[in-house]
Design a protein around this nucleic acid. Structure first.
Lengths: 88, 88
DNA sequence: ACATGTCATCGTTAAATGCCGATTAACGAT
DNA sequence: ATCGTTAATCGGCATTTAACGATGACATGT
């Protein structure tokens, strides 16, 4: 992985709320935006924006199912991230 | 480690140049600011600023030795970072 | 004492970020 | 066809970031 792509992932994780979203997604395996909105003291649009950033970095993926979108952590990307960090 | 401190480290690594600075510091073990300036196409002030951000996150530490400052990666912090990422 | 080398900091600029409320889009149920 | 639910996007705002050149601080060599 090149530093530009890695930087994007690190940048995405460079916000407390987004770290906790990722942690929650790993625990829960998958969940919809609305559930995450219920956990944090931020508006729906803000959480949606955070999810967009996480998605764009590649660490999280979302699957549209009807009106809902199911989010989950991309395990392959997470694995690559772990490999990179461990190689440091 | 709490998500606020971790986010700071991730944020610090959320820039391609800063990732490469950290990689270089790990390879070289320790080096002065001027050497890093010579590697990247950025001004001395910009590199100094990047080093400051890395230092403030805790992942890098600098030791003033006369007119020079020797930078190196804080291995304890790096270890904690690895532990956190691996626990994801 | 003075010049040199090394680095941090200041001031500035353009761009990006974080947050919000409001709007829009799309689906499912009535 | 309309309504409620869900989520993405838009416009706006204040703040932060990334980059630069210029300046300042300090130790060392002459």
């Amino acid at each position: 992985m090149e530093s530009a792509q890695l930087a994007k992932i690190f940048k995405a994780l460079g916000h407390p709320t987004r770290i906790r979203i990722v942690q929650h997604l790993i625990e829960i395996d998958t969940c919809i935006c609305g559930e995450i909105v219920g956990i944090f003291p931020y508006s729906q649009s803000t959480i949606s924006q955070h999810l967009k950033i996480l998605k764009e970095s590649g660490i999280v993926c979302g699957e549209v199912e009807g009106p809902k979108t199911y989010f989950c952590v991309d395990k392959a990307v997470l694995k690559r991230l772990k490999q990179f960090v461990n190689a440091l």
